[in-house]
Simulated scan of single mutants.
Amino acid sequence: MILEGFYKISNTSVAGDSAVTTLKVNKDHEIYKGHFPGRPVTPGVVLMQLFKEEAERIFDRNLQLVRADNVKFTAVFDPTQDDELILDSHLTETGEFIKLKGEAKNKSGIVLKINSLYKVL
């Protein structure tokens, strides 16, 4: 896990090709000390990494991002306002690849939409 200490999983529900995971984000994590002091904002690349780590956990395999399409950051995720983040993913395994279509949400709405492709290592 690259994001050691950044979050804890509160709940995961997997049904067919869908997974919904609720994360509790650590608002005191080192990332927020530089991004940005006094106004913490979760970096977009960190939000993308959360989906990769969750797919690795669900499939119990190491993955490498091959492609990310239609990545849309629709809102700022500030953990001091709401420290819960929900990852809603649709995952499809095809041979040596895993396709993911996902949305990251908090109580205010969608924070990130992503379509990504990972290679199984």
Rank of each mutant, 00 (worst) to 15 (best):
Ile2Thr: 12
Gly5Cys: 10
Tyr7Met: 07
Lys8Pro: 00
Asn11Lys: 15
Thr12Cys: 07
Ser13Cys: 11
Ala15Met: 10
Ala15Pro: 00
Asp17Gln: 13
Ser18Ala: 11
Ser18Gln: 13
Ala19Thr: 05
Ala19Ile: 04
Val20Asn: 03
Thr21Phe: 09
Thr22Tyr: 00
Thr22Lys: 10
Lys24Asn: 09
Val25Ile: 15
Asn26Trp: 06
Asp28Met: 07
His29Met: 09
Glu30Cys: 07
Glu30Gly: 02
Glu30Trp: 14
Phe36Ala: 06
Phe36Lys: 01
Pro40Arg: 05
Pro43Lys: 04
Gly44Arg: 07
Leu47Ser: 05
Phe51Trp: 00
Lys52Trp: 01
Lys52Thr: 04
Lys52Val: 03
Glu54Arg: 03
Glu54Asp: 12
Glu56Arg: 09
Glu56Pro: 04
Arg57Glu: 03
Arg57Val: 06
Ile58Phe: 07
Asp60Arg: 15
Ala68Lys: 00
Ala68Tyr: 02
Ala68Phe: 04
Asp69Gln: 13
Asn70Trp: 06
Asn70Tyr: 08
Val71Lys: 08
Lys72Asn: 06
Lys72Phe: 02
Thr74Asn: 09
Ala75His: 13
Val76Ala: 10
Val76Glu: 09
Asp78Asn: 15
Thr80Arg: 12
Gln81Phe: 05
Asp83His: 10
Asp83Asn: 15
Glu84Met: 14
Glu84Phe: 15
Glu84Ile: 15
Leu87Glu: 05
Leu87Tyr: 03
Leu87Met: 11
Ser89His: 09
His90Ser: 12
His90Lys: 15
Glu93Tyr: 05
Glu93His: 04
Thr94His: 10
Gly95Leu: 11
Phe97Gly: 00
Leu100Asp: 01
Lys101Asp: 02
Lys105Ala: 06
Lys105Glu: 07
Asn106Met: 12
Lys107Leu: 06
Lys107Cys: 06
Ser108Ile: 03
Ile110Val: 15
Ile110Thr: 14
Val111Thr: 08
Lys113His: 11
Lys113Met: 08
Ile114Leu: 15
Ile114Lys: 01
Leu117Thr: 12
Tyr118Ile: 04
Lys119Ser: 08
Lys119Ile: 01
Val120Trp: 00
Val120Asn: 01
Val120Arg: 08
Leu121His: 01
Leu121Asn: 08
